[in-house]
Design a protein around this nucleic acid. Sequence first.
DNA 1: GCCGTTTTCGGCCCGACTGTTTTCAGTCG
Length: 569
Amino acid sequence: MNGPLPRNADIADQLDLLADLSELLGEAGFRVLAYRRAATRIRDTPSSVAQLALEGKAKELSGIGATIEQKIVEVVEDGEMHALTRRRDQVPGDVPLFMRLPGLGPKTAARIWSELGITTLAELRAAAEAEQLRTLAGLGAKTEEKVLKALAEGMGEREPARGLLGAGLPVVRQFLEELRAHPAADRVSEAGSIRRRRETFRDLDLIATASDPAALTAHLVRLPAVHEVVAHGDTKATIVTAQGFRVDLRVVPPESYGSLLQHFTGAKDHNLALREDAVRRGFSVSEYGVTVVETGEVHRFTEEADLYAFLGYAFIPPELRENGGELEAARNGSLPTLVGVGDLKGDLHSHTTWSSDGKSTMEEMARAAIERGYEFLAVTDHSHYLREGRLEQQAAELAALSEQVAPFRLLHGIEANIRVDATLDVDDEALAGLDWVIASVHHAQDRNPTERILAAMDNPNVDAIGHLTGRRIGRRTGADVDLERIVEHAIETGTVLEINSQPDRLDLRDSHARLAGEAGARITVSTDAHSARALGYAELGIGQARRAWLTKEQILNSRPWREIEKLRR
DNA sequence: GCCGTTTTCGGCCCGACTGTTTTCAGTCG
């Protein structure tokens, strides 16, 4: 076997497909569940699972045993899992896609295939139009209608799109404000993946209690931001906004608010693990309360914290609820105190109009940073725009402005480019005179990214590596870097790794940042702001940092500049 | 398939909704 190892995402995709195919073939449900759990675990693992499997250490990941480890080795050595190859031969191409359509699960999809001989999405559409699906017992006109509607919208052919956290959060806040303003509203909260600050979302979940639930759902569907009402009942409503975001509101009884908020915040795997653990200890947990199995006694919780406490856990911040070890830590008292957006003392990555894509002047950026309560701001324009004396001109402007804004500290920095040959596009002499130097890969990110980044770290003038993988969420996967070597070298050289807070970057991603933090690397939460307003993206980066279990002490720019200066290499 | 403060065997979350049904299986979150 030559060439690069398969990516974790590729292995996870194969296991998910194996799960789908196994389900269609009617295999044991718990094996299917195991494949899916393993796929999730592999996606969330920061280091190369292929490498771990070759070393016989993938088994140490929970949810992965000897059998699945062997399947991963097969992917490395033979390019595909044998179990997957066999099932691919048995199930015609489009049949797994049937399951993406609403109302069609594995059982129904399998019957459409085996009893009607339908194997493509085109045939499925034709059969629905010809009213042939209803010849199957249990299927009727409604099902045909839903299938046709979904096919017309392109479901089945592509994965449903996910929105960016940075786009969804302001929308959620707007709805929260408008719902809270209604007289019937009591408590209103965000829930779901947006509350966990996951980088993308499928829909925006809201939970509320109300003196008059029906009045609150009626209020929601009449708000100006509502483009389409999908469902509207007395306690539940679903709407779609003009930008295409789906918003779900559930109004719940106040005595179970804590349980329900916990349930609808998820993640699914967190709730599953919580409930399995509860079953082992004689409790049955549902969204309405906790039942003591032996006595049948039901405990209800108005507060989430009380629910966790009853089950013997410290309160688990939503960002940690991904079944990534948080339950164990909450039981033995080792949960970290997570960094908060208020802990930041400044921003170490920003752009001004000195970069042609910068929207705000240096002064506007400085004023915005002061407005946020910051003590410092590093101006780190792109090296490309600072040639032929412009770096010196910028230094002069910065010095003059610094006097006006003192004691606020304006730092002169740069974002240098790591070239394909691993050299930087700014000479060392110029770099040495600056307060803060970021080195970033901007071009040809797939050509030796790891070696280029390691080489940049060897330059003593480099303080930090910007947006490590160069990914653009939903558009570009990002470089397949050797994270462990990079983190190790960052620690050896004292180079800082950045969590870039741009909504479509969030790079380091959560799992990468967690590994970096556990290893002891220094991390910044920086915005890479190209406008004064974009300094507010810090909350997205903080969300990512919290998902990575990071504390204030681990985030370099939670310290005053004089301390950071001393820690500089 | 995985996993273990009762277990290396025998478990594996819980409830609501939907469509098609005379009592529920399948789907969904």
